[in-house]
């Protein structure tokens, strides 16, 4: 390119001419190997295709001066043609560079997101808590938030942004800060959903929706109250009856309408009962529709109910990952509470 000085260009031309002349005389593989190394140097110096043709033309003109009369127009023609190729080539180069920059930014954004949306799993003497959240891509569109007050109350919000990747992650930071402003109101599931709904409805693009399951366990009364905004129902394992009950609660997704009301339900937890909350990454078996996800989840829990809550989460992940051929297409999040 023009940026390369005339002197430098003359040097390259001299080198090229030598390599070409050697090849014309000897025609060995070694000559060609040297040519390949020289090409590497040309690319590194950003020499465009049209310049390479020009270098070649000048070399030929010196090696075979008497042939040049006929060949000159053909070379000039090729230079013209290659100018356009050179343009495309440079554009490609600069897009590659841009891509590298984006990837770098993405990496930084991912680590910021991880730090921002890190869930701290509380340790309580009254209930065993397990949580696992694994993103399908770099950024996680699921988020779990815990609140607790001494050993008496434990609240958990399990959220899933409709969508994945960067937009989902950005939206999720908003949910997190919405939850953090709740302070002492975290014990009322329907109130929490109403507040977060307003936050999302006001602050986020119309195309963004969030589902949330919110539950609060009062360990004194053994009462689990819960509400849902378009989220997967949680599963309650009743140890005494050895049965699973789906904790269904109807409610619109968050962010759809400004004044949506949510109702809450209550269920009594007995000793050894297990509550499993999850996102649809756990229950949706795309391409494996013949499998009943509910059956798989309940049998994993029932067969391993003596494991700790955290071990149960991990086991469930391993089992479901296996079913998906170790390629989960959605963010996977599960929270387990064991009385």
């Amino acid at each position: 390119m023009a940026a390369l000085g005339r002197e430098k260009m003359k040097q390259l031309e001299a080198q090229y001419k030598k390599i070409l002349a050697d090849y014309i005389v000897n025609q060995t593989e070694k000559n060609l190997y040297i040519a390949q190394n020289f090409t590497r140097q040309l690319i590194q110096k950003n020499i465009s295709p049209e310049d390479v043709i020009s270098i070649h033309k000048n070399a030929i003109a010196e090696i075979f001066p008497d042939r040049m009369n006929e060949a000159q127009p053909a070379y000039d023609f090729l230079i013209e043609v290659m100018v356009h190729y050179g343009m495309a080539h440079r554009e490609h180069q600069s897009l590659l560079q841009k891509q590298a920059e984006y990837e770098m930014e993405m990496k930084i954004a991912t680590s910021i997101q991880k730090a921002l949306l890190k869930t701290h799993i509380p340790k309580l003497s009254t209930v065993d808590i397990g949580m696992l959240s694994v993103p399908a891509r770099k950024m996680n569109g699921d988020y779990v938030h815990f609140f607790y007050h001494r050993d008496d109350y434990l609240s958990v919000a399990v959220t899933d942004v409709v969508g994945k990747g960067v937009p989902a992650a950005l939206c999720m930071s908003m949910v997190k800060y919405g939850l953090e402003t709740l302070e002492y109101a975290y014990k009322e599931p329907s109130y929490v959903l109403e507040v977060i709904n307003r936050v999302i409805e006001k602050g986020v693009d119309d195309s963004m929706f969030v589902s949330m399951f919110y539950g609060c366990l009062d360990t004194q009364r053994n009462m689990f109250s819960y509400a849902s905004a378009g989220h997967e129902p949680a599963l309650h394992y009743n140890a005494k009856q050895d049965q699973f009950v789906a904790l269904e609660a109807k409610g619109l997704l968050l962010g759809v309408l400004p004044n949506t009301k949510y109702t809450y339900q209550e269920v009594i937890l007995e000793d050894n009962d297990i509550i499993t909350m999850m996102t649809d990454g756990v229950t949706e078996f795309r391409g494996n529709d013949h499998l009943n996800s509910r059956q798989i989840i309940t049998s994993v829990i029932r067969d391993n109910k003596y494991l700790s809550a955290q071990q149960l989460c991990q086991l469930l992940y391993r089992e479901i990952e296996k079913i998906h051929g170790f390629d989960l297409s959605d963010d996977f999040t599960v929270v387990i509470l064991k009385k």
């Binding site: 049209e50 310049d51 043709i53 020009s54 033309k57 000039d76 230079i79 013209e80 100018v83 343009m87």
Partner: peptide
């Protein structure tokens, strides 16, 4: 201008 730059300007 040389051949290559002529080609560039023209393009």
């Amino acid at each position: 201008f040389g051949t290559v730059d002529q080609a560039r300007i023209t393009t």
